[in-house]
Amino acid sequence: MAPLGYFFLLCALEQALGSYPIWWSLAIGPQYSSLATQPILCASIPGLVPKQLRFCRNYVEIMPSVAEGVKISIQECQHQFRGRRWNCTTVNGSLAIFGPVLDKATRESAFVHAIASAGVAFAVTRSCAEGAAAICGCSNRHQGSPGEGWKWGGCSEDIEFGGMVSREFADARENRPDARSAMNRHNNEAGRQAIAGQARLKCKCHGLSGSCEVKTCWRAQPDFRAVGDALKDKYDSASEMAVERHREARGWVETLRPRHARFKAPTERDLVYFDASPDFCEPDARTGSFGTRGRACNASSAGIDGCDLLCCGRGHDARTERRRDKCRCVFHWCCYVSCQECPRLYDVHTCK
């Protein structure tokens, strides 16, 4: 039996972290890149619940892909929000890699859960198609009959398997009967649907001199940038929900319903939230806001990346920077390009 003090420590940790999926920290640091050859590392990944730990031990060869999926989701999040007050900043040296910003059930939390779930599904699917794991590979579940002039061939990516891995691993912690778990499950699934909904055919021509008399086609994932773009659109149109509490046989259960009845109810592909976001204008340790002072802004834009909105009305500073850029590039046969470096002046605007 564990010492009583250890039990209270675990309880305090669980309360402090709430539903925060600190397993996202497996994307930080090189120590998890060798998961496939060192199964013992499963036990060292912080924040795994028992179901995730069992999954890791049973499918350790795809865990590097899970880590890669979290990495690409963080990169995509930072790309999508690069011009916004909250720019998906990560916190060094913290298991909660986004800091307290995800403690609340906001639009930002909804997007991060969706993109992380999508990232895991995407990376696992791609890894399987590349033959990196023995337990998965190409899909033989074709969608419909071949069309005129083409036939099924190549390696159709097993999007269903990638989605299953994401569902089993990313959703494992979201099993509590509270509103936040319900929200996280919904947004995780919306992330996976962003991939499945944009799957497309890729084809290769066959015939004399590239005549394309016959094409072989296979089912492929979209580019992950397209997934990020789709989820960013869902973030902008996310549905605000209200929390309802009712009693069932297993006890009190919280569910979500649309806060505004005049709006269409969200589908499984929409993002949902129920807490208002902070304005992210000033640093605030409680909300995880870093503020926008010193951030570069676009003086010619009237959008959120413009100096008026990004700087929250505080104004901005302007300066000129001299940079050296490649110029007068020449292609040499065969086969390289040579360039000179030319000085160039840039106007730089930063928030006060």
Rank of each mutant, 00 (worst) to 15 (best):
A133C: 14
G153Y: 09
G149N: 13
A132T: 04
K151Y: 10
C128E: 02
E148P: 11
Q143G: 10
T125G: 05
C136M: 02
A134K: 15
R141D: 07
A134M: 12
R141N: 09
G137C: 04
A132E: 08
W152H: 12
G154R: 06
A134W: 13
P146L: 12
W150H: 09
C128H: 02
Q143R: 15
S145T: 15
G147V: 05
G149P: 14
G154M: 06
A132Q: 10
A134S: 15
Q143T: 12
E148F: 12
A132N: 11
A134H: 13
N140C: 07
A129V: 01
I135N: 05
K151Q: 15
C128N: 02
G153M: 10
A134F: 12
G149Q: 14
A129F: 01
G147P: 06
S145F: 13
H142E: 09
E148G: 05
E130R: 11
W152V: 11
A132K: 14
G137T: 08
P146W: 13
H142C: 13
C136F: 01
R141K: 13
N140P: 01
C136R: 01
W150E: 07
S139Y: 07
N140F: 05
R126M: 00
S127A: 13
E130M: 04
T125K: 04
S127M: 01
W152G: 08
I135M: 10
A132C: 03
Q143N: 14
S139K: 07
S127L: 00
S139T: 08
W150T: 08
G149H: 15
A129N: 03
I135G: 07
S145L: 15
N140I: 03
S145H: 14
G137K: 06
S139L: 09
C128D: 02
N140R: 12
T125S: 12
R141H: 09
C128L: 04
K151H: 14
G147W: 07
C136K: 00
G137I: 07
G137V: 08
H142V: 14
G147A: 06
A134I: 11
S145G: 08
R126W: 01
G147H: 04
P146V: 12
C136A: 04
C136T: 03
A133I: 11
S139W: 06
A129R: 07
